[in-house]
Design a binder for these strands. Structure first.
Lengths: 368, 368
DNA sequence: CTGTTAGCGCCTTCAA
DNA sequence: TTGAAGGCGCTAACAG
């Protein structure tokens, strides 16, 4: 159960919700069953009913306790969590902020968050920026209004000082009201962070690809301001340098962080002409788009062109040729982020490093 | 903005949250800024402040209104939506119930729900059953506790009278407290429904495949109790019958509704031996799993075996050979469901029919 | 148009 | 252990 304190109702199977009339002095309205109703039916006070139902410490006599629980079940009572939150000053909801929930990267993270939230008895509200990072701050403000217990920022940080400052202020305000914060991706905010080793693993990937005999590369780099994308490009460049390979500015082309982004930049590259044996797309979804574009141009994969991605998206593991990529444990990352915010705040921000793993598959054949 | 009534704060850019001391009689606590603080700073009453900030109808003098808004901005005030909901008796949250958010079918629907929710100023809380339909009722109860404005059931209905009855009772209770309900998929619940024409379109698909010359089929049917899966199998069987083709019980094998389900049942089928030129998997994710299994067995696609799926998952549009499938407008379905629950309840449940569209691609070559 | 005053449903001291 | 009562932050009559 998501929250053990919430009576599931219907234990007795008596569908008594509409038109119930309690005790001698029935309630006037037909609105939701309230704790008052339960208390009256059980013949106890409001306070006792509250303690019996919620009671962290069991300081209520057993028979009364049972009567209250029975009454709650009979009336199909469900505690008003909003009122509970107002009275207690804090709620049980965690806000999850993503750029696009249809993107498998985010939906995998979300799955992990949901699983962990369930275990912790927390409720998750979802917000999507529609890939407009400038909306993040507004959502954090909204979550502060909801008195959310925590917020998880799953989207990549953005290279924009103005935005970052506005977001930081909003986060500070959120935290000032007792909210917890976790960031997934980069360690650029003074908050608990699940750091994905984009740069280091992209570097390993480059070395591995060079080891396969590739010497000339093109990079589909994603949006310029997205730090996740930038880190991957940087790491990749470094890895190539390790192998004595130089990546010219013309070899790096920018575009959207989506399938269509990969498709279009690949098309542009093909139209312009380029000299490489291997294309690195900074995420799998783009890589798949690039593969489609290459095929349309009659380029045979992997013989005539190698392609590598990043993330190891589960749904994409069956594309052909199988995609060389970096495995990122997205679901675990989501779960880890939720665990962080479920814990009380530490003195210093916690940092959880998550390594990636290079996975060489058929899309990058050995050459030379 | 998600909710125009929620002041975004930080309009002035004064980071005044922690340690503010208002007017002569500063507040004792350092807790969240309250409407009372705003009212005091603006020199108006609580009611006026409330009206100025929320004011559906603008019945507050302009200068006062401005003073209140300025005060709110200076204090970085964010209305406590929980308290608001308690006072008003209803909240702005909609519960979205899916089986698995990592499944692209559900994440696409979720994307549509999010987009529409944003337009309507509603907040979405996500719940996942982890593919255990018996958990649905519990989540509806939890949403009743949250005083959610509505719930959207995105997962397939299940063929289980006991479960259905428990869910119905829970939904009735939810509705009795003023909640709205929308169901995606089958029209088996007395609630607004976005009906996906699984059966009719599966039938069309079968006819189309028969038109390609196929005469012997195998069906990866998914779980027995999942009605979405069942409807697709039924429609497909009917379509074959239209073409004078009989589908024997041995030609239909059950398994999970996932990629691995498709992979494993296909493997089982191959191990057992079967006589078909075309495999129909009841969703795309399973179809991709089946393709992987076929390849492992050295079966060439599509020459030696045709494969068809269902849903037209965007992320899977680039598999090779391109997958024949039925296009379902998942995002629009999600948006439609949200629109239904955003409207006031009608006398009779609304029904929105969503047709699918057969998309023939390379995975099902013409034979004969 | 503005302010006063009850609530909304629940939790939680504070006495008993 | 139990109950009465005040308070959480906000809204919505109801008077002015």
């Amino acid at each position: 159960m998501p929250d053990p304190r919430v009576p599931t109702g219907n234990v007795t199977g008596v569908p008594q919700v509409p038109g119930r009339a309690v005790g001698g002095a029935g309630r006037r309205t037909t609105g939701p069953v309230t704790l008052m109703d339960v208390a009256r039916r059980a013949g106890v006070s409001l306070a006792t009913a509250s303690r019996a139902l919620n009671g962290g410490e069991r300081r209520v006599r057993e028979d009364l306790r049972e009567r209250v629980i029975a009454a709650a079940a009979e009336l199909d009572y469900a505690v008003n969590t909003q009122a509970q939150a107002v009275a207690r000053g804090r709620s049980n909801v965690v806000g999850l902020l993503v750029h696009d929930i249809a993107d498998p990267y985010f939906s995998s993270i979300a799955a992990g968050v949901m699983r962990a939230a369930d275990e912790h008895g927390l409720i998750v509200t979802l917000s999507t920026t529609m890939r407009q990072p400038e909306r993040e701050a507004g959502y954090v403000a909204s979550l502060r209004g909801q008195r959310a217990r925590a917020v998880i920022l799953a989207g990549s940080r953005v290279d924009d000082p103005g935005l970052a400052e506005r977001l930081q202020r909003e986060l500070a305000a959120f935290e000032a009201t007792g909210g917890r914060i976790a960031v997934i991706g980069q360690n650029r905010l003074p908050a608990d962070t699940v750091l994905v080793e984009n740069r280091a693993t992209a570097r390993e990937l480059a070395v591995a690809l060079a080891g396969l005999g590739h010497r000339r590369f093109a990079v589909l780099a994603g949006p310029k301001r997205l730090i996740t994308a930038g880190d991957r490009v940087r790491g990749f460049t470094e890895g190539l340098a390790d192998a004595g390979i130089d990546l010219g500015p013309d070899d790096v082309v920018h575009g959207d962080f989506t399938r269509d982004g990969g498709y279009e930049t690949m098309h542009a590259l093909l139209a312009r002409g380029f000299d490489a044996t291997c294309v690195f797309a900074v995420n799998d979804v783009m890589a798949v788009g690039a593969m489609a574009a290459l095929r349309e141009h009659g380029v045979r994969l992997p013989e005539e062109m190698a392609v590598a991605g990043f993330d190891d998206i589960a749904t994409l593991r069956d594309v052909t040729p199988a995609l060389t990529t970096v495995r990122i444990p997205l679901e675990e990352i989501g779960a880890a982020a939720l665990s962080l915010v479920a814990q009380p705040r530490a003195e210093r921000p916690r940092l959880r490093r998550v390594p990636g793993e290079v996975v060489l598959r058929e899309s990058t054949a050995r050459i030379g």
